[in-house]
Amino acid sequence: MPNQDAMTREDEGLRLRGARRADRAATIVLGALVAIVCALVAALVFYVLSRGGAKLFDLSFLTGRPQQFKAGGGIGPELFNSFYLLFLTLLISLPLSMGAAIFLTQYAPAGPVTTAVKTAIETLSSLPSIVVGLFGMLVFVLFFGWGFSIISGALALTIFNVPILVRVMQQALEAVPQGRRDSSLALGLTRWETTIHVLIPSAIPAIVTGVVLSAGRVFGEAATLIYTAGQSAPALDFTNVDLTSPTCPWNVFRPAETLAVHIWKINSEGVVPDLAVVSAGSAAVLVACVLVFNILARVLGRALERKVTAA
């Protein structure tokens, strides 16, 4: 029946043409969506940098003291506090989350308890940061009596950061080919030796990328810190090494306003005449730092990947 054959062929042709048209349409729509996202990010970065970008190169702004009433204040202590808090947060949260991720992927028996823990971690990672901040105030600031301090802030930020790090590390460890792990065990090595010598080196590029990205998030976090690290930045004296003195930069029991909190504070209750300039400058510095973190994450991740995989 040649007639029928021809018809099926025609149907087939129509179907193919339809599929191709749908594919073209999807390409255009997806491209447009990506363009919108890119435009949003670009506009935001451009706006922030165009308003405060000049301050990025203003050394007296970057290192100067903030002013209460006069114009011309800087963000020196805030910038230092942001980095110091980030450092302390990573110092606490890295070993914690590494341990948790190793346990969950390598040791934990599959069962209701493990599932519950994994769900808990996921829930924790989507907790609003202001809730984490208020919890931190109740526990660290009031219950332990550490007051508004760097240590309270760093611990609150740890609660904020650990769930994300655990997930990143869990995924990185799970992405290591099963055969690589089995090979190590088949050589008569223990799980711990396998983890230390095979799994972590294999997963390190992904882990480093994840850690640096999370550092960007921590660096820009404000809500968690408002009620834990406080909103005041006492003047710092870098020659002071007395860890109990409030002017010693390394004293973890002193209050420490960070850059992100500073932006929030001057905009909500600032009285300095140049608050728009200070705020824009601070925002530009913050965005620049986060950008640097993100670029660093990519560069480091790729470099490690290359080091681990190839010649």
């Binding site: 055969g179 690589r180 090979s183 065990l185 090595l189 080196p201 681990v308």
Partner: peptide, 25 residues
């Protein structure tokens, strides 16, 4: 496992140098 070794389907060197791969065990 040291006395009864195993080789797998997919070649799966560790992300180490050739020397360290062999010296690993």
């Amino acid at each position: 496992r040291r006395c009864i070794g195993m080789v797998f389907q997919q070649p799966n060197p560790f992300p180490l140098s050739i020397y360290d791969n062999v010296a690993y065990g």
